[in-house]
Design a protein around this nucleic acid. Structure first.
Lengths: 209, 209
DNA sequence: AATCTATATATAAAAATTTATATATGTAAC
DNA sequence: GTTACATATATAAATTTTTATATATAGATT
C-alpha cells in the first residue's frame, strides 16, 4: 500500500463516502485526481481494506459509498504509528520568490499581493469548515471522528496567517523602502543596488521608518 | 518547460553549480532526485537555456558547472511573472494526524514529539544558512542574488515555529487534559469519550486548569 | 579489512501522477 | 438555447517522479 491508499483509508475512517466526495476531502490531505482515486479504491476493495454499497440515484449517476473494513482500519493504525517521511512541498510561488529579484517592482508586488489574496480566501474556507464542526457538536454527540480533521484545520489556518504576516514583511521590505528613497518609477538596476545596500541592514531601515 | 526546469534555472540564476550541488539547493524549492535532475539539465542545455563548463578534478570525479544563458534568464523572468499554480503539499504527518484518534495515547504523543524535533532541527539548519548569508555581506558587496533565498529562509523558519506552537497546542489538548482527569494509563475508549466531551469546550478546559 | 560518507554523473525500470477523453443528467446562469 | 457547473465513475495516454543499478575515488569510521 502507498500513502495515497492510507490517506483514503484515513478519510473513510472518519466518514463513509463516494470516490467523488473523497477527491474533495483528499485535496488538503494528499492531493490526487479522480483518475488516480478510482483505481486506488478498486485496489483497496480487492485487497479487502474497504467495502462499498451501491446507491441508486435518480437524476444523477449512481454511486458507490465506500467504508473501511476491520482489516483496513488495523492496517491504517499500524501505518499511523510508524515514523513519518519528510514532507514534499511543491509550490511554484516559492520558486518565483527565489527569483523575485529578476522581476520588475510592480510584478514583484503583484506576486506578493496574489499570495495574500490566496491565503485569505483559503482561511475563509477553512474557518467555515471549522464552524460546521463546532456547530454539529450541539446536534450530535459523537464528534470524536472530527478530532484529527479539526486539528489540521487549526494548523493550516495558523500557517496561512503566518505566511500572510511574512508576505507583508517582504512587501514592506521591497517596496516601502524603495519608495521612500525614490518616490518615482525606478529601473531594475536601481532596485538591485538599493536592495544590496539595505537588505541586511535592519538598523538602517529602523532609522528610515 | 516544466516547473522542475524553471526551478533549476532559478537556482542557477543565483549561482552557477554542478548537478550534484543543484540537488541540495532544490531540496527546499522543488525536491527532485539526481536521476531527474541530470536529464533535465541535458534538456535545458540542448534547448540553449543553460551552458556548462567541464571542470577537471583530481581525487574526485570531474564535474560540469552549469549557468543560465541570456535565453534561459529571459524565459525564467517571463514564467516568474505569470500567476502561480496552487501548492501541492504531500506530508505523511498530516495524514497520521487526521487519523490520530486511532492511535494509543503514547503513540499520539510520540507522533507530535517527533514533529517538534523535526521542526527544531530544520530551524537550526535554516538559521545557519541565514547566518552565512548575513556574514558574507561584510566580505562581498553584491549579495543581491541572495535576496529571494533569504526571504524564503525567513518564511520557512516562521512557518516551522508556528507549527511547533501548534504541536504544543495539540499535545496539551490531548494529553494534559486527559492526565489531569485520569492520571493512570487509559484505554482508547476512555480517551475517545473524554475527547468528545472536551474537544470543543475550551471554557471547561479553562475551568480545569 | 570492510563499511560508510561525500563527491560526481548517467540511465533503465517501475511507480505515481496528470491530462485527456468518454458517458450521463439536472440545475443555474447568460 | 447554449454554456457552465455539479454530480458520478472509468480508463488510456502522457508525463513526472522514484527506485535501482552502474561506475569511480578519497577520507573517515568500525
Amino acid at each position: 500500500m502507498n500513502t495515497l491508499q492510507y490517506s483514503i483509508l484515513s478519510v473513510l475512517a472518519r466518514k463513509a463516502c463516494s470516490g467523488y466526495e473523497l477527491v474533495k476531502h483528499l485535496e488538503v490531505l494528499w492531493p490526487a485526481k479522480h483518475s488516480q482515486i478510482y483505481p486506488a479504491l478498486t485496489k483497496l476493495s480487492k485487497g479487502g481494506y474497504v467495502d462499498y454499497e451501491l446507491v441508486q440515484q435518480s437524476g444523477r449517476p449512481n454511486k458507490k459509498i465506500f467504508e473501511t473494513t476491520e482489516k483496513g482500519l488495523s492496517e491504517l493504525k499500524e501505518w499511523a504509528s510508524i515514523p513519518f517521511n519528510d514532507p514534499a512541498i511543491k509550490d511554484e510561488f516559492l520558486v518565483k520568490i527565489y527569483a523575485i529579484r529578476l522581476l520588475e517592482p510592480e510584478q514583484a508586488e503583484s506576486l506578493i499581493k496574489d499570495r495574500i489574496t490566496f491565503g485569505k480566501e483559503k482561511i475563509n474556507r477553512l474557518m467555515e469548515n471549522m464552524g460546521e464542526i463546532e456547530k454539529d457538536l450541539h446536534h450530535d454527540i459523537d464528534q470524536t471522528k472530527e478530532f484529527g480533521r479539526y486539528m489540521l484545520l487549526e494548523r493550516k489556518v495558523r500557517l496561512l496567517k503566518e505566511e500572510i504576516n511574512w508576505c507583508h514583511w517582504v512587501r514592506d521590505f521591497v517596496t516601502k523602502s524603495i519608495k521612500f528613497l525614490l518616490p518615482v518609477p525606478i529601473s531594475l538596476g536601481y532596485m538591485e543596488a538599493l536592495i544590496s545596500e539595505m537588505l541586511f541592514l535592519p538598523q538602517l531601515l529602523q532609522v528610515i521608518f
